[in-house]
Design a protein around this nucleic acid. Structure first.
Lengths: 226, 226
DNA sequence: GTGTGGCACCTGGTATACCAGATAGTAGAA
DNA sequence: TTCTACTATCTGGTATACCAGGTGCCACAC
């Protein structure tokens, strides 16, 4: 008889963390009437826990850049400025570009093939039709590149940036020619990886992401500027 | 009459955080007789605070990867594995390489000149003599590159990695020809920046850091393998 | 009507008490 | 002697109480 050890390390904090984080991600942070203020006591009551574990979660979320705690003032969901968003995209480009470089050398043929599979779902013409679905697959594609670099830290650090992208995508995505361009970019990246060319793969990934950077810089409208 | 606003946002937590973090950084984590276990109650007593703010700091340090909290078991300073250290260096290379690329285009002439000033302190022959001092200036040099990229997030993320480097350097540094090579590398980087060549600058920074990567992979000895 | 002082209440910060799992030492039974 | 079972105690996890700064309303004085 064989038994898996019970994972006793899951604690209230973990549950609270997951709840809060998804709740924040689902908020429309940049809506004009968005209520960005949180209240410890009411949150604790809603979740049915005391303030103590809740506060530890808030510290965590604050450090991830999702919240800002102002002593004796309140807890606020952070709105990212255009500047900060652009910097996140730059950092993301740096990480994923390195991932592509590593992947070109270290990834297995199967792993690279899996990328082509994901991309094959969308032709240049079809992708425009189903933007929201494409958007999800798009993220999966980029995550996959980070995964097959076999450097888990790159994936971890990039994930920390992705969190903030939910709200951004809602505002910044949605132009047909960008999607077409994106699909073409992806194919170029895959081909470079298949050719096992680290330099070209890294360049293409970086350029691809930096195009998003330029696009956001051009079209982003912060709520107050609308 | 003019008055600066008083910064009321400094709290006990901040003090505790600083104390604990420097204490951890000064520990010789990889010594054989290192005591990696911490005790909440005794820490709280030593610092003269209650467990509550202390615990929030511990959450923060855990998330930074410096600690590991095992419920009902204890709190431990994390020893990084060789694998993790190598991944940190890779990520660092990715970030700093991107920083150099940006700096080549965005940094002012003065900022680039400041790099040359820092490097001028060391000739190829002299650097070997004062390794520890050079080591500090070395870090300052790399931080400066991140700064003059004018992308503060790159600097922030890289700083998170630097924390773990204290202990590593103690073990991995110290060969004379590496230092000589390092000084030469730095000059090459500066020249690329002065030439405003983003591609070469990025390449040289990345190669430079990846040489550290290869060196660590070759010479690192974890405590248990000694 | 205007401005000032003060009070009531809201917030996050901190201290303390208690809980349950983990652990090791020891006494007792086989 | 050896193995088991109980218990004392240590740990981090959680709940609760209290503290002090922040804010805004309102009464009162001018």
């Amino acid at each position: 008889m064989k038994l898996q050890p019970i994972d006793t390390s899951v604690t209230l904090k973990d549950h609270i963390y997951r709840r809060l984080r998804t709740a924040i991600e689902e908020m429309d942070i940049y809506a004009e009437d968005a209520d960005l203020r949180l209240d410890e006591r009411s949150l604790a009551e809603q979740l049915g826990v005391s303030r103590t574990p809740l506060r530890e979660v808030l510290v965590k979320l604050e450090q991830e850049g999702l919240l800002e705690v102002k002593p004796r003032r309140g807890i606020f969901v952070q709105q990212k400025s255009l500047e900060e968003i652009l910097e996140m995209i730059v950092a993301w480009a740096a990480l994923e570009s390195m991932a592509a470089r590593l992947a070109a050398e270290a990834a297995s043929d199967d792993e690279i093939a899996s990328l082509r599979e994901m991309a094959a779902k969308y032709s240049v013409t079809k992708a425009g039709a189903e933007i929201s679905e494409y958007s999800d697959d798009n993220i999966r594609f980029h995550r996959r590149i980070l995964d097959i670099s076999h450097c888990s830290l790159l994936r971890t650090m990039a994930d920390g940036l992705f969190v903030h992208m939910h709200a951004v995508r809602r505002q910044a995505m949605g132009e047909e020619d960008r999607v077409a361009r994106s699909v073409a970019d992806h194919m170029g990246i895959i081909e470079a990886l298949e050719a096992r060319d680290p330099v070209v793969a890294a360049d293409r990934v970086r350029d691809h992401t930096m195009r998003l950077h330029d696009h956001v810089r051009q079209f982003w409208r912060a709520p107050n500027e609308t």
